[in-house]
Design a protein around this nucleic acid. Structure first.
Lengths: 161, 161
DNA sequence: ATCCGTGCAAAATCTTTGCATCTCG
DNA sequence: CGAGATGCAAAGATTTTGCACGGAT
């Protein structure tokens, strides 16, 4: 919506999923979904989504945002994630409900979170199924470490000294 | 400590780590650590730890349990984890801070959580480091799916019908 | 008219903090 | 003895819920 490009296709697809599940496409829900798409990979908390939605639709209530996020989670359009602070954050599941959730790389130095959409766990899941007889349906994987930028900064810092 | 076997060695090691980090060895802290060891793989919440500690040491306060859990987390004796409910749960890190955190298998049918102490991510970490230039220091991996017991139950259920 | 959705405010949870007192080392 | 730890209660923070009203079919 706003100035920069909005993934209309994706928005429509989500609206369709809401509709097919019997939910109405209210302005509040549309505004919430738009904010999520505009901040894709932003890993926003409920409060952060609320603040962004409120810029465009000032009359919306925080409870409505919570209720919408809950619906979107149930429909597997979103996944709830949580990193360093205890806050629940919401992450669009672009891969769809039929694929496994994407991975995250969390930099413990700058806090940045990078997404990995390639599924790196196919082999590991085979081991889990064969060795532990556990039938995998999904996964959540986060690597903690130092991102490329911080590695570079750290090297530069060392050279100065 | 109570009726069943208590891992004295592990308790001592944790007390030593507390001591070396400059913390006092109070009865409350000992009771908290004991409850955690007795309920290893229990993935207890703060409230659940509190209730268990209170059985042995009725005068302890919930705030003290929170403060102790926070200290143990900082010392990497515990890891905070979170599964289906939003609650923060505490998981003893037996592998120590020098190894990567163990994996979890969460059964979405019965809610049981199984631990996998073998590190299945060595190859994947190599890919992450080479392909994404991300220097991995730790990871958190949870598989969702159906545990062996539920698979069996489901098969038996199907045969009846 | 009916059903669903909404905003507001209150309630419910979970967690942290301030402070007087106590205790380990 | 003194710094750190504790218990209690109060405050904070986050999330859920109750309820009357509103809007679309």
């Amino acid at each position: 919506m706003g100035g920069f490009k909005m993934d209309e296709q994706y928005l429509k697809s989500i609206q369709q999923q809401l509709h097919q599940a019997g939910f109405k496409l209210t302005p509040q829900r549309e505004a919430t979904v738009c904010s999520l798409i505009e901040n894709e990979e932003g890993h926003l908390s409920a409060e952060e989504v609320y603040m962004r939605v409120k810029e465009k639709s000032p009359d919306i209530g925080l409870a409505t945002v919570y209720r919408t996020l809950e619906i979107l989670s149930e429909l597997k359009i979103l996944d709830k994630v949580s990193f360093t602070d205890g806050l629940i954050r919401y992450d669009l599941r672009r891969e769809g409900s039929q694929h496994h959730f994407h991975h995250h790389l969390l930099c413990t130095q700058c806090g940045k979170i990078q997404e990995v959409h390639e599924d790196l766990l196919l082999d590991v899941e085979r081991v889990v199924e064969q060795q532990f007889h556990f039938q995998v349906t999904d996964h959540k994987l986060t690597f903690q470490g130092i991102c490329m930028d911080c590695q570079r900064k750290n090297r530069e810092q060392q050279q100065k000294q």
